[in-house]
Nucleic acid binder design. Structure first.
Lengths: 208, 208
DNA sequence: TAGATTGTTAATCGATTAACAATC
DNA sequence: TAGATTGTTAATCGATTAACAATC
């Protein structure tokens, strides 16, 4: 149903939040929602909500609002959440292991298949079958389809790692190391925890 | 040195990145930097860099550029990174423990003092002295100064927890649970990993 | 039908970019 | 001095808000 007006960057960044709230409404068995109610939930304006949905085609009905399930599915499809993805984690340190153990992502189709590290023997990780040495990465990728690599290593090795991944045909990276990497043809999304903490620091010192 | 033209939201969000890059330049013993070089590093325009710095007072010199250390300190001060903060973590699950063990934050003055959970006995956490039962939170806060609480619990308990924290005088929260909480008088900064992953999904499906 | 609420246009606001005089 | 680069204004661009006709 997706029309191809080009969606603005600001709208795109709001899509995951819409998706999350719609999912919650769905779980509460709420069948329809107006732009006004949705806006209230997200602390934005109803006008923005309608404007956003309007850019990728109209899903609502005048006088009624939006069908929650339908809208959630449409937005999910735009985000690519109607598919499954094979995921590997590189770096079996604290964060890598935490992500591996966290089950929330597989609910949305992100299947974590293996976790790699430079040191396998001294790692406390339990599921030894899925903890592989980084030297096995090439072979692994040759034999298994992988869509996304999650990087949880030291920042020093991220650039080389990304280049290597690209050679192996993996172009999507979720990066937890505090470094911005730009490589043509790759899509790299960063989680920078320090920057978020610094923003908290700013806001607590500047009174909201 | 901070002038009080009010800093735009867009500028504020860039400050942590400036800070990070300036720190890196400092570590490489680079003493000065022009708006153009900095812009290149951050993949933004030189005009934006100068405009940003200009809003909180001019730190540069015509014909020379900016003194790296001085600029880093100024931005650090604006972000509140010239102070120290006592931090507690609530929720000793995967993410909570990973954050506790991660040393990177203490470099910037964020001192993690203790970690709380509803179940202390069955937790694999090593440093038993700093792992406390959530029921001890009130007493702990009564006896120890705490500036920031990091929430790593299930989303169901976040609202109550925040209210409780506020009662105890803690108004700054770094929240890792996938829920947006708005409480007047509190500053709550969210890390929403799912939303970042969904954005990656969108971008990989829409070809950058 | 009358009431509710969308889809969409036009007006406003804020952020980015371009340009250049000021000056180190 | 001449060259480099800032600080700042003005122009442009994009995002938000307001308003309302269309319509379920």
């Amino acid at each position: 149903m997706q029309k191809s007006k080009n969606i603005s960057e600001a709208t795109i960044k709001r899509l995951p939040r819409y998706y999350r709230y719609l999912k919650e409404l769905e779980q509460q068995n709420i069948e329809r929602v107006s732009s006004e109610k949705l806006a209230l939930l997200l602390s934005i304006t109803a006008s923005k909500v309608r404007q956003d949905f309007c850019t990728f085609g109209a899903f609502g009905m005048q006088g009624y609002g939006y069908d929650v399930t339908n809208l959630r599915k449409e937005i999910g499809a735009i985000l690519g959440l109607d598919k499954e993805y094979n995921v590997i984690i590189i770096g079996a340190g604290n964060i890598g292991k935490a992500l591996y153990r966290y089950s929330g992502f597989s609910d949305e189709g992100f299947r974590i298949k293996a976790i790699f590290d430079i040191d396998v023997e001294n790692n406390s990780f339990k599921n030894k079958a899925n903890l592989l040495h980084i030297d096995e990465l090439n072979n692994y990728l040759y034999e298994h389809p992988v869509d996304i690599a999650v990087i949880c290593t030291q920042k020093e090795m991220v650039v080389d790692l990304c280049n290597k991944l690209k050679e192996c045909g993996i172009t999507s990276v979720w990066n937890f190391a505090p470094i911005d990497v730009v490589i043509p043809g790759m899509v790299i999304e960063n989680i920078n925890m320090s920057e978020s903490l610094f923003l908290l620091s700013y806001r607590m010192n500047n009174n909201k």
